[in-house]
Amino acid sequence: MWRLLIGELYPEVEFLEPAKEALFWRIEEALGMPVPWELVELLRETNGVWNEYGDAVVWSAERIIEDNLAMRSEPDYRELYAPFDNLMFFGDSDMGPQFAYVHTGYGPGIISWDHETDERRLVVVSLRDYLVRRFTQGSDWFR
């Protein structure tokens, strides 16, 4: 399903081997939160998605673990930013913002996070909407 959608949106994409199943449990264990089902399904089809500029539209399962743990443990980040404990970062943009799942009162949503201002803004409510906007509306859709 995800390969088909991404291929239609971005025919130049190169797909990777699927993520190993054990990585999903490592993400949950390392971050203390469940991996959204739609992200699990995408990673089961391809372990990450990149655009033509090399931006990691969706990070690999390994990077999700590494970057989220680094952001949560970096001493400078603790002084500069609000906590990241309720976020699961999974992608970034050539324009600087990073994207993360956050659980809202209505279910999970996807926010953009600006490292310069620490602004966290709900931009879409599903991975499908995120991918459609990333591949069809360019880099400015989240502003």
Rank of each mutant, 00 (worst) to 15 (best):
H103S: 07
V57R: 00
D114Y: 04
R133K: 13
L87H: 01
V124G: 03
G32K: 09
A22G: 15
D114N: 11
I64L: 10
E119P: 10
Y106I: 07
G109W: 07
G107Q: 15
N86I: 04
E116P: 01
N86K: 09
I111Y: 01
S93V: 00
L31C: 14
S73N: 05
D92C: 09
P83I: 10
R44T: 12
P18T: 10
E41W: 04
F24T: 08
N68S: 05
G48H: 02
D92H: 10
N86R: 08
L127T: 02
T104G: 08
D118W: 08
W50K: 15
D67G: 03
Y77E: 06
T136N: 09
P108W: 06
E62F: 03
M71E: 04
P18D: 12
R44W: 12
M33Y: 08
Y77I: 12
D76T: 11
T136V: 10
A56W: 10
T46K: 04
R63K: 15
N86H: 12
A22F: 14
G107A: 12
D129Y: 10
N86W: 04
E29K: 13
G107P: 08
I110W: 02
Y81C: 01
D67C: 07
P34I: 13
G91W: 00
S93P: 00
P108I: 02
E21G: 07
S73K: 03
G32T: 07
L131A: 09
L69R: 06
W25C: 11
A22H: 14
F24E: 06
P36D: 05
A61D: 01
H115E: 13
E28K: 08
P83W: 06
I111V: 14
D129S: 15
V123G: 04
E62T: 07
Y77C: 11
D76F: 13
I110Q: 01
R133L: 13
G48S: 10
N86Y: 05
T136S: 11
H103C: 05
H115V: 11
R63I: 08
N51K: 06
D114M: 03
Y130I: 06
N47I: 07
T136A: 08
M71C: 06
P83G: 07
P36E: 05
V40N: 05
R26V: 11
F15W: 09
L39F: 05
P83F: 07
D129V: 12
E28F: 06
P75R: 09
R128L: 06
A22C: 13
M33V: 11
P75E: 13
V124E: 04
W113M: 03
E52T: 09
W25S: 15
R134K: 15
L43V: 13
A100Y: 03
E45D: 14
V58L: 05
G109F: 09
R120V: 04
Q98S: 10
P75Q: 13
F99N: 00
S60F: 02
E17N: 14
R128C: 04
A30K: 04
A100P: 05
V125M: 15
D114S: 06
D67H: 09
E52K: 12
V123E: 09
A100M: 11
G54A: 08
A61L: 02
P75F: 11
P34Y: 15
W50D: 11
L23H: 02
S112V: 09
I110D: 01
S112F: 07
R72I: 02
G48P: 02
V123W: 04
L127Y: 02
W113G: 00
G91T: 02
L80C: 11
I65S: 05
E79V: 11
I64F: 04
G32I: 08
L43H: 08
R121G: 03
D76W: 13
